[in-house]
Design a binder for these strands. Structure first.
Length: 490
RNA sequence: GCCGCCUUAGCUCAGUUGGUUAGAGCGCUAGAUUGUGGAUCUAGAGGUCCUCGGUUCGAGCCCGAGAGGUGGUACCA
């Protein structure tokens, strides 16, 4: 009988999706706990919403029949409605706030964290599923609300464990550049957008590159040509002067900006908002090195209407192959006064910030040298089938005493069991065979001690017979002996 | 989306002008060591040579298309 062999599926994660193991998860959990504590200390309430939203709630990236998954992961519900996985936490917040507006106490302040999904080309440090952690204030147009968001972001990074010198929040206001462009006679929206994109590339291309992109266009090393914004040279000069207006302190930058902006109504409004943010940041004692006014910050998102924030990490690390590893932006946000209005028709001021948790975790791991590995449990070796009951009794006793413990459940011999415990980074192994049962004792091995000694032992016979870190104690001392070893390891 | 490069064992890679049975290191499993982790030695398992089509007596190698990966660029709510 010949049977068709069913094709075997290839075991692989979808591209852009990653498996995270205990070490990475523990790091994420630490970050989320630390940042949540900061948010709650400012009075923000925790909110969780579902992974899916109806597509029309997600904004202008609606799935259409031809390309339903452009940018988002979308599917059609059994009532034909399009639903899509959320691509950030802000759109669901806007929906929630609009849906519950009448019953919420205003301003509504909430924080949220969870995975978001984007259906786009993955790259290094860029996934199609990743964690964000957001805090937003809905219903306050005060610049002080922005200042508070900034202060929390700075505090959040510190609480997560980033060294102060490794990060900074860069702050700008959309109204400044808008006002400047209006004053310079640039009113066409496509052209404005091109200017924003050009300015955004200052850090990567430098002033020269930005000037080309503001003007006719730019050809890169690969020969590809990017069309420019087509500004006149006078306008280019004023944009460049604006972009380079950054000074050592927030107040000095403000002074310089007021010289450069040139008195448009919108520009003055932006300056006024930044001044009040500056005042509040000063009184909240947010350091000049932690929160910087930087006119070149744009944030691509079109929905921002006022202040914009972006967190940069300056950490430079070296990867496994000696290449330098750069982490991009590790968070961003800003003021979006029109998002809730999409649902309610009423202009509702809102401002918020989003931590890129996954990137932050990667940055932290690089900063402190790959981070700590999670310790394994105490392993009770299964040496004798007839004694399995005793092994489970021992494990129960240890767990009851608060010591994570497992009985080895594989089928391999003792050597493999020791190796198993070693590779799990277990602090101790409990060895009970016929000898111990007969004598009423337990043998406990301190695996860390052996790990430390291993380097200096060359001869296997000596290594084995030396039995480093191994004690045999009366059965009644089991918990005390194991606890001593585990606590020394922690 | 566009341009370049790449795809051979779990991982990193070698593979001669196109010629018999496709290799190495690391890792994995086991033995040397009946009850002891590292090192050493030995053995073993592990392959759709990315896929499909073509050229050829013969293709891992040549040609075409596609997929995936990667770097740059564009976009990025």
């Amino acid at each position: 009988m010949t049977e068709d062999v069913p094709p075997r599926p290839k075991a692989r994660a979808p591209r852009g999706f990653q498996d995270r193991r205990a070490d990475a998860l523990a790091a994420e959990r630490r970050i989320l706990a630390a940042v949540s504590r900061v948010y709650e200390s400012y009075g923000f309430e925790h909110l969780d919403t579902g992974a899916f939203e109806y597509a029309d709630a997600l904004g202008k990236f609606l799935p259409d029949a031809d390309r339903p998954n452009e940018g988002v992961f979308a599917l059609q519900d059994d009532d034909e409605q399009w639903m899509a996985l959320r691509y950030d936490l802000t759109a669901p917040l806007a929906r929630f706030a609009a849906e519950n507006w009448d019953s919420l106490s205003k301003p509504f302040r909430r924080y949220a964290y969870g995975p978001v999904w984007r259906n786009e080309k993955p790259g290094p440090g860029r996934y199609r599923e990743f964690l964000q952690c957001d805090a937003d204030t809905v219903g306050s147009d005060r610049p002080e609300a922005d200042a508070e968001i900034i202060a929390m972001a700075v505090e959040g990074y510190a609480a997560a464990g980033l060294p102060r010198s490794a990060y900074a929040l860069r702050i700008n206001n959309r109204k400044l550049l808008n006002g400047l462009l209006t004053a310079a006679g640039v009113v066409e929206s496509g052209q404005k957008l091109a200017v924003l994109r050009a300015v955004d590339k200052l850090d990567r291309l430098g002033p020269q590159g930005v000037v080309s992109l503001l003007g006719a266009g730019r050809k890169d090393e690969s020969g590809a040509f990017t069309k420019g914004a087509g500004l006149a040279s006078a306008a280019i000069d004023s944009v460049l002067a604006f972009v380079e207006a950054g000074r050592d302190t927030r107040v000095a930058t403000l002074d310089r900006l007021s010289e450069v902006i040139g008195g448009s109504a919108e520009g003055d409004e932006g300056l006024g908002e930044l001044a009040r943010i500056s005042e509040a940041l000063g009184r909240m004692e947010v350091g000049e090195d932690q929160a910087v006014f930087d006119p070149s910050i744009v944030r691509g998102l079109e929905y921002y209407t006022g202040a914009v924030f972006e967190a940069d990490i300056s950490l430079q690390t070296v990867g496994e192959r000696g290449e330098s590893v750069r982490f991009g932006s590790i968070g961003g946000g800003g003021r979006y006064d029109d998002l809730v209005a999409r649902f309610t028709g009423q202009k509702t001021p809102a401002t918020g910030f989003s931590f890129g948790v996954s990137r932050l975790a990667a940055a932290l791991a690089a900063a402190d040298g790959q981070g700590d590995r999670q310790r394994g449990p105490v392993v009770v070796l299964a040496l004798d089938q007839a004694l399995m009951g005793d092994y489970f009794a021992i494990a129960r006793e240890l767990r009851a005493a608060g010591l994570p413990t497992e009985v080895y459940l594989g089928g391999s011999g003792m050597r493999a069991q020791m190796k198993y415990a070693d590779r799990r980074l277990s602090p101790a192994a409990v060895i009970v065979g016929g000898d111990e049962i007969a004598a009423g004792t337990v043998t406990i091995k301190d695996l860390d001690l052996g790990r430390a000694l291993a380097a200096s032992v060359a001869d296997n016979q000596a290594w084995r017979e030396g039995r480093p870190g191994q004690v045999t104690a009366p059965r009644g001392e089991l918990v005390a002996q194991v606890r001593r070893i585990v606590e020394a390891a922690a």
